[in-house]
Write a protein that binds this DNA or RNA. Structure first.
Lengths: 214, 214
DNA sequence: TGCTAATAACTGACTGGTCAGTTATTTATT
DNA sequence: AATAAATAACTGACCAGTCAGTTATTAGCA
């Protein structure tokens, strides 16, 4: 370890990349150990700075988590939800498309990480839970409910309860991820998200088939 | 506050009910604040004893949680699972029955409490997660899969993937509870477990209908 | 081009508080 | 008196957040 010829600058002035570097370090540590068991000191070390510097960019430890949630939510543009709510016609192809998209997105571990951390931290940090709920759940679930309600009204699908059916649509994905990530079920076989999605779509399409007139 | 004439004995010797009293106190506190945010001192106070006394009955704080899980699991006798795996015929009525039973059980807040605490504590305490997985998940989910596989083999239901379909069967219940308990969705309307279960059964029964020969 | 403020980036020791688990002591029971 | 049960004070470790001081970088000036 020669210390004399270190070519790396000790500081990097105008470090606008720092907050993102802190978030990267925090995400990897939170994924490994969870939020509560990770200290700010650890985050700082992994980001290559001191603990004090973290507090130059984030007000508190919780603010780091808020930053992570916001960064993860950003790409989920309004476009997706807006398009769904204005949909007309048989909702089943749209549902299948949404499910395949969800499968693709949640098939990536990095996309599962933040929701899982939020899930764990929600009871201890209600404002984090509220943030996630308002930004993700309160937009996506009503959109699916509306899509289903429109399908029922138009007679395209069986006369189901739209709100509860939204749970039947998304529930299996949530369950699959939790069983895999939290309880380690089928860890050897991998997540097999595609296998789940296609099977689920098969059952759902048939289950929503409009009833014969009796 | 006269302290001289207290007729209550300060100690209650030979308290064989103590472990259960500690578990009761711990459960109510864990439900209110979560495991991590509850101190052993608080558990002791609510149980009406001192902190030191808790350690006469439980080796560690985690041992209290293990005790809670075991106490919650005990009533889930083998009978349920054994009966399912040996079932022959159309699995759909059996599935509906299982779902209605799950709905009844998980409709009670006290039955949701321990699983939710485990869900929250699983990442920090892998042995708790493993205990719950082995005692509950590894017995119930394969039982449902076997029931479905038997139904497929006998031509009673559509030719689905039994393991993945098990997620479609139980996923919505899990999702509903999590959305309600952790993210507080539909808190005003109550849990409405029956409404979910009946709607889910409708879709599931139709979705598993055997395909027409083509 | 050098030299000298000025300032932005950063450090690490420190504080105050919490809490799991231990132990010396006290109290009740037989 | 002997013993079991329970207490309360204590220990050691951890950690979020603070702050006085240090170092790198830039700007102004000669």
């Amino acid at each position: 370890m020669s210390s004399s010829d270190s070519p790396l600058p000790k500081f990097r002035r105008r470090a606008e990349a720092r907050p993102d570097e802190v978030l990267d370090a925090a995400l990897s540590l939170f994924m490994e150990q969870g939020f509560a068991r990770t200290s700010v000191e650890q985050v700082a070390r992994r980001a290559g700075i001191s603990k004090g510097a973290v507090y130059l960019y984030f007000e508190s430890k919780e603010a780091i988590l808020v930053g992570l949630v916001n960064r993860a939510i950003a790409p989920l543009s309004e476009v997706l939800f807006e398009n769904i709510t204005s949909f007309e016609g048989d909702p089943r192809p749209a549902l299948a498309q949404i499910l395949r998209l969800m499968g693709q997105v949640m098939g990536q571990q990095r996309n599962r990480a933040v929701p899982l951390i939020v899930l764990h931290e929600a009871p201890a940090a209600p404002n984090i839970a509220a943030l996630f709920r308002e930004a993700v759940l309160d937009r996506s679930i009503p959109a699916i409910s509306a899509l289903l309600a429109q399908g029922v009204a138009g007679g395209y699908i069986r006369s189901v309860d739209p709100e509860m059916t939204a749970r039947t649509v998304i529930g299996p994905i949530l369950a699959h991820i939790i069983l895999f990530e939290i309880f380690g079920i089928a860890k050897d076989d991998g997540l097999q998200m595609d296998r789940l999605i296609e099977n689920h779509i098969t059952i759902l399409m048939a289950g929503l088939e409009p009833q014969k007139e009796h």
